[in-house]
Amino acid sequence: MTVSRARSLLQGMRDSIPMIVGILPFGLIYGALASLAGLTLWQALGMSLLVYAGSAQFIAISLLGLGSGMAVILLTTFVVNLRHVLYSAALQPYVGGLSQRWRLPLAFGLTDETFAVVQRRYLSRGMADHAQWYHAGVAVALYLSWVGSSLVGALFGQQVPNLAGWGLDFAMLATFIGIVVPALRNQPQIAAALVAAAVALLCHAWPYKLGLMAAALSGIVIGVALERRESPAAVEEGGR
């Protein structure tokens, strides 16, 4: 059975809906904070359009408010976004086969949320059924949600009280749980999750998402170590 490109694109957009629920309030709050920090409408929107990295944008806004210099903010952006190297590496076996024309925009849209949704699809079905169009659907839907909500936030955000009070960010947690739990099928995966959770909690106070990075790396190391101990023979094949 073949699936059309348009259908894959739409499916990607549809699978992004829970993420969009989680992104919208963040975008609204970002827009509101950006304009409070003195950015013009175009600057607030431009940052979402061009940088497209929620955590880094929030931190940049607060650093601007503290009067930090450009070098500090750029360095912070680098450190906060380092985790995306992991996503880039994890998706490279799939995206690597695509033309430059695809790889450039897909890299631009590689956020936490995009990664979470598309890796699930690549894992279950590889490149079948126009996977790149599915990926594009996710990326476009999430990008437009971020940019659109940033714009609305910059325009009206200060008039909507208690935006954060609804807890819509839980939609993102629920989605991530729904992705992770079914993947915990063997001991190494379970151990990776437990160790990542423990390190994330221990290091939650580290700045610039470095705790997240440490947690992710610890989980990965434990997973690989256990996998190698369990089946040293299978390691040499190394196939996916």
Partner: peptide, 14 residues
């Protein structure tokens, strides 16, 4: 292990 490790490290503190 990237998806499991990263997503868990976001979810549990969350």
């Amino acid at each position: 292990y990237v998806p499991t490790a990263v997503l868990t490290a976001i979810v549990v503190p969350g």
